[in-house]
Design a protein around this nucleic acid. Structure first.
Length: 427
RNA sequence: GGGGAGAUACCAGAGCGGUCAAAUGGGGCAGACUGUAAAUCUGUUGGCUUAGCCUUCGGAGGUUCGAAUCCUUCUCUCCCCA
């Protein structure tokens, strides 16, 4: 199966320039995607393009991961209704380092001819003077052409306007493609469908400036069946960095996808073959309550991004939290297990004399541990039966004392079914 | 520059002298149901020492026994004309 065929059945092609398929059929092709170093971690919104690059390499082509060190300093107007905040160089440098490590999880940087390569566009733009830029890049593209881009047009119409800086963004990205074409024989740029305009500026520039032929390939934006934005959970973005989104939460995110989305995501975010995916979907439909699709999806992605061990820990934690976990089982957990299960769960500390002084449950939940922002809210939730201590539903007059302590120093508080808090009692 | 409309809780939006901590919808949170889902139903959504009290309706003053509501003024937003 060729690269394009692979992407096609997975529903990962939104648009491509004519001739792309023929180009790839001729032999090993060099292609790239760009990522924005606006944060020190990638998030699952980047996943689709990363998978595209992974398939690209698996099909025998040579992938380049470009970190947008300089483009990140400008800001891409695509999909943004307002002008962006500029980042300074130190932060960008730091972010690039972190992102590189994450890219290494997807691509093989040491497999001979088609080893993946990382580049940073800052390296070839930092010494590029403004005059040079105007002469070598700006001269080849008309403003008329630039203004027809969706990202630009939307901002022109919105009234908030667009700065010259962001307007120029497409030239900068276009020049990257041009540079890679010239220096690394790169013929193809891939990205999300929102990048189409920017990518095509690149192919245009290559044609006018170098008389060369370059290609574009985009994948559709990942959507959710209920219309809400993909990639956000209650806590905001779902990051690939375990320090920002714990492997447990990461696993849970995928486990909680709807049936419809899971069938879609499993094609896009895992490497299961077509037959495997179809059989999984068929099995899932026979017994939807077992949520086989979600489990396989969560397993595959969690292992790829984190590790087998972290996946197992996430499953174990999930079983304790959602399965048959009772007050009994909690008391039997060792401290290590307890801490690893509740890794990433908000923690707070209180001293042991406060605990033995007979404070009320409301005080405990609000003032002492800040689990609730106000006493009224704590009271309300208690009345509704939404507060659990060590997996046991409690009321406002529940007596707090040392017999509750797990491993002699922890109390597990639950706000509703899914929000856990670990209170550590210190001597 | 001239004329008009408006600013109310997380958002939208009613209320136009006491019965207003403020209708209704959305969103949020929780409960029931369930598959850790969706849909649905229920409760809740300023704070506190909670049968009560305190602080809120753009800001500052004023009228009144009593103001989200009336008056003055300031700030901001929107619309129309030039």
């Amino acid at each position: 199966m060729t690269f394009i065929e692979e992407l096609r059945w997975r529903g990962m092609i939104h648009d491509m320039t004519p001739g792309t398929e023929e180009l790839l059929a001729k032999g090993m092709t060099v292609g790239y995607i760009g990522v924005d170093p606006t944060s020190d971690s990638l998030h699952i919104g980047n996943l689709a393009t990363l998978m595209m690059l992974l398939h690209f390499q698996r099909a025998g082509h040579k992938p380049i991961g470009l970190v947008g060190g300089s483009t990140g300093m400008i800001g891409d107007p695509s999909g943004k209704s307002d002008e962006r905040v500029l980042l300074d160089e130190n932060i960008l440098r730091h972010n690039q380092g972190c992102i590189r490590k994450q890219l290494e999880k997807f691509l093989d940087f040491d497999c001979g001819e088609n080893s993946a390569v990382m580049v940073n566009n800052y390296d070839w733009t930092k010494d590029f003077s403004f005059l040079q830029f105007l002469r070598e890049v700006g001269k080849h593209i008309t403003v008329n052409y630039m203004m027809t881009k969706d990202s630009v047009r939307k901002r022109m119409e919105s009234g908030s306007g667009i700065s010259f800086t962001e307007f120029s963004y497409q030239l900068l990205q276009g020049y990257d493609f041009c540079w890679l074409y010239e220096h690394m024989n790169c013929r193809l740029q891939m990205g999300g469908s929102d990048q189409w305009g920017n990518i095509v500026t690149g192919t245009e520039l290559i044609r006018r400036k170098l008389g060369g032929e370059a290609y574009a390939l985009t994948c559709p934006l990942i959507t959710k069946s209920d219309g809400s934005k993909f990639g956000k959970s209650e806590g905001g973005n779902v990051w690939l960095d375990p320090a920002k989104t714990s492997p447990y939460k990461f696993y849970q995110f995928w486990l909680n996808t709807s049936d419809e989305d899971a069938a879609n995501y499993i094609k896009k975010f895992t490497l299961f073959t077509r037959e495997e995916v179809e059989s999984l979907i068929a099995k899932h439909q026979e017994a939807p309550h077992l949520r086989l699709l979600q489990k396989e999806l969560a397993k595959d992605i969690t292992i790829r991004i984190h590790s087998e061990a972290e996946y197992k820990a996430a499953v174990e934690a999930s079983e304790i939290l959602f399965g048959k976990g009772t007050t009994e089982t909690l008391h039997h957990l060792s401290e290590d297990t307890l801490l690893s299960v509740f890794e990433g769960v908000p923690q707070s500390e209180i001293s042991s004399d406060v605990l033995s002084s007979g404070m009320t449950v409301t005080d405990f939940l609000s003032d002492k541990t800040h689990i609730f922002p106000s006493k009224s809210e704590a009271r309300r939730m208690l009345k509704e039966g939404g507060v659990l201590i060590n997996k046991q539903k409690i009321t406002e007059d529940f007596p707090l004392n040392e017999s509750l302590l797990l491993n002699g120093k922890y109390i597990l508080v639950q706000k509703g079914k899914k929000n856990y808090f670990l209170v550590k009692v210190i001597q």
